[in-house]
């Protein structure tokens, strides 16, 4: 039985002036699955992620998320309908503590008005505590209790990545986009991060689309892999299929002719 797809990318093309970042890229991602996008540098992976949550506007093509067709989505709509993401270069709010950063991830769910917030009374103080409870669960889940009050600027790189994941999870997304969640980490940190991604996927049923360069990790955790090269999709399939795909091997290793 085929599973329902949560995200479908249809014939998406994106160019910056003369540079074609994406050319007719299509794929779909099933509900509760982990999909990895791989490809050499400059293949258009991050651009693709940016198209999915509306940071870039594709010239052609459409995104179908949970059966809704989007032509020109803006990031706010994407966030509202349940997509959250992390960035390749950590995009945390440097001046805030870990706790505040993660709480920011819940801002869409906060309703208190200006006056209520000004007096910290009624809806506002109630909400702050409710959301704090959810955030604390995420903090427990990602094992970052010890740093909850630390300003994020003071944290080491690996923990910053983890805080960014926490912030994305705080929105209780249905689709999580991760842009190189393990870049620059050592083996142990990569193992931790892989475990968190698998746990998120299993426990919360969140679908994950991730970009990653570490092939070991990609092969281990993903259900499906999409390979991009020069803005075009050159392969799609399970890890095993990709391993034996001649075009993918050529793109990575070069062709001798």
């Amino acid at each position: 039985m085929t599973k329902k797809s949560i995200l479908q990318v249809n014939e998406v093309s994106l160019s910056f002036g003369g540079v074609k970042a994406l050319k007719n890229v299509s794929f779909n991602s099933e509900e509760k699955s982990i999909l990895a996008i791989i490809g050499p540098n400059g293949a258009g992976k991050s651009s693709l992620l940016n198209v999915i949550n509306g940071v870039y506007k594709p010239q052609q093509g459409e995104i179908i998320f949970k059966n809704t067709v989007w032509k020109n989505v803006i990031p706010f709509q994407a966030a509202q309908s349940g997509i959250s993401r992390t960035f390749q270069n950590i995009a945390l709010f440097k001046g805030m503590s870990v706790l505040e950063n993660i709480l920011t991830g819940r801002s869409l769910k906060m309703r208190a008005g200006l006056l209520s917030q000004g007096f910290y009374f009624g809806a506002c103080s109630r909400e702050e505590i409710e959301h704090r409870e959810v955030v604390e669960q995420i903090i427990d889940f990602l094992q970052i209790q010890h740093i909850r009050k630390t300003p994020v600027g003071r944290l080491p790189y690996g923990l910053q990545k983890r805080v960014e994941l926490a912030r994305a999870l705080a929105a209780e997304p249905e689709l999580l986009l991760l842009d190189e969640p393990m870049a620059g980490m050592n083996v142990e940190e990569k193992e931790d991060m892989s475990r968190f991604i698998l746990d998120v996927n299993e426990e919360y049923g969140t679908s994950v689309v991730l970009i990653e360069h570490d092939m070991g990790v990609v092969m281990d955790i993903s259900d499906k892999i999409v390979v991009l090269d020069y803005g075009q999709k050159i392969g799609e399939g399970t890890p095993n299929e990709i391993k034996n795909n001649q075009r993918v091997i050529d793109a990575y290793l070069g062709v001798s002719d």
């Binding site: 990031p75 995009a91 709010f93 920011t104 869409l108 917030q117």
Partner: peptide, 19 residues
């Protein structure tokens, strides 16, 4: 929440928008 939104816009507006 408002204060956090202000600081988010100040520190990293793209990330704030995506949230």
């Amino acid at each position: 929440n408002l204060g956090r939104a202000w600081m988010a816009v100040r520190d990293m507006d793209v990330a704030a928008e995506v949230i």
